[in-house]
Design a binder for these strands. Sequence first.
RNA 1: GUGAGAGUAGCUCAGUUUGGAUAGAGCAUUGGAUUGUGGUUCCAAGGGUCGAGGGUUCGAAUCCCUUCUCUCACCCCA
Length: 430
Amino acid sequence: MKIPPVKGTRDFYPPEMARHNWIIDGWRKASLRSGFEEYDGPIFEHLSMYQLKSGQEIVEQLFSLQDRGGRDLAIRPEITPTLARMVNQRINALPRPIKWFAVPRLCRAERPQKGRLREFFQWNIDIVGEDSGQADAEIIFTTLDYLRMVGLTPRDVQAKISSRRLLAAVLTSIGIPAARLEALYAVLDKKPKLPPETFDALLAEQVPDTYQAEKIRALMALNSIEQIAGIVEPNEALAQAVDELRTVLDILNAMGMGDYCAFDPSIVRGLAYYTGVVFEVHDIAGELRAICGGGRYDNLLRDFGGPPISATGMGMGDCVLEILLEQRGLLDKQVPKRELEYFVALADPQAIRSVYEIAARIRSKGRSAGFSYRQGGLSKQLKEAAGQDARICVIVGQEYRDKRQVVLKNMGTGEQELVDVEQFLSRLGS
RNA sequence: GUGAGAGUAGCUCAGUUUGGAUAGAGCAUUGGAUUGUGGUUCCAAGGGUCGAGGGUUCGAAUCCCUUCUCUCACCCCA
């Protein structure tokens, strides 16, 4: 009986594993060079941890299980609650700011489609305990630093940045009641995906007042925060929100990321826990779903039973990223090829023991070495070596028995040299 | 949960319109040409429940019904 793979999962055969590892290595490098430390938690948690701050729909998209003690558990669909739990547990002992990153494997029982699977990896970076826009700018910088490092340019991707505080301040000042903001956010969030008439119709449902609706349309059309003054009267809350966002954009400019960044008021982000700066990175063509998203969530630690400490972060899944990198031809030329440094070939059937010995001694020097498990001519062995992408073949033949010499054949150039085996091995270093 | 499309070799596909004999090709794999020199080339081999079940028929990959799976889009997107 054949057992199929589970829906929405991937098998990583060696070529896919090489790509995957290259992506994750890049995430780690970008994190570490911006001063983030790696952490991780368990792959399952108490179900109640995800019920705490999430809606019913989201709980239905969890893979949940009961352990033998009857405890309700769930495979993690995100790592931010785990981060909140871990930070809260040691909040008084951790030096701040807390800059942590993780590359968790996550599961969500959603319907799979392009760029979205049921099991995936997600790069997370978070800064806890820093209120200023410097932290938001660091998160966005680190994200863009990675994307730039793998070869994506401002012609490929753009960080669209906005602020929930700013949105709230504008909407409140034109007379939208605070209780209606949440529902309105959902409409604004959809704007880029909808034709203008459809958006207008949805907006009219939420905001029947044509004056207010007109103001909102004007707000959504802005592409610079300076233009906000032209839409609404200044006030304290608005000035603060504008100032915070301007700080973030200024820092990103100073760090050389200005070309990647744009103010975009249609960025709202789905879930309720965002409180301040929010951002998403999209492919310029807009063909794919968001590459990553993040923002400030100042209430989350408190909501998980900790003190009121601010936080800001970002999550980037591997699925959309890999599709984009493949599209741009950035994978094949950058993912390291499989490579075997030495292949020990046998040209003297009586010397098979020397092949084992030499291969083992090369390995003991920290270099990779292989040899053929089959009996066959030298021609066969070289073919096998080529198949394994060996760089150099060490040919053990008659000269070895006579004078302890082997032939080193460079498989790239075809050049050969006859060398003393002890000299060759000592050249390899410790 | 809703809608559309697709299932034939490990992969990419032809064959289905108009039913016909042992279901094909390229790539990949394995062996040989080649017992001290690889990549190229040439020859050969292995590999199939034509997604599954039922029906029509002398005869079904092909027509009909049911079902499963996958993909894409919608909903949602932490």
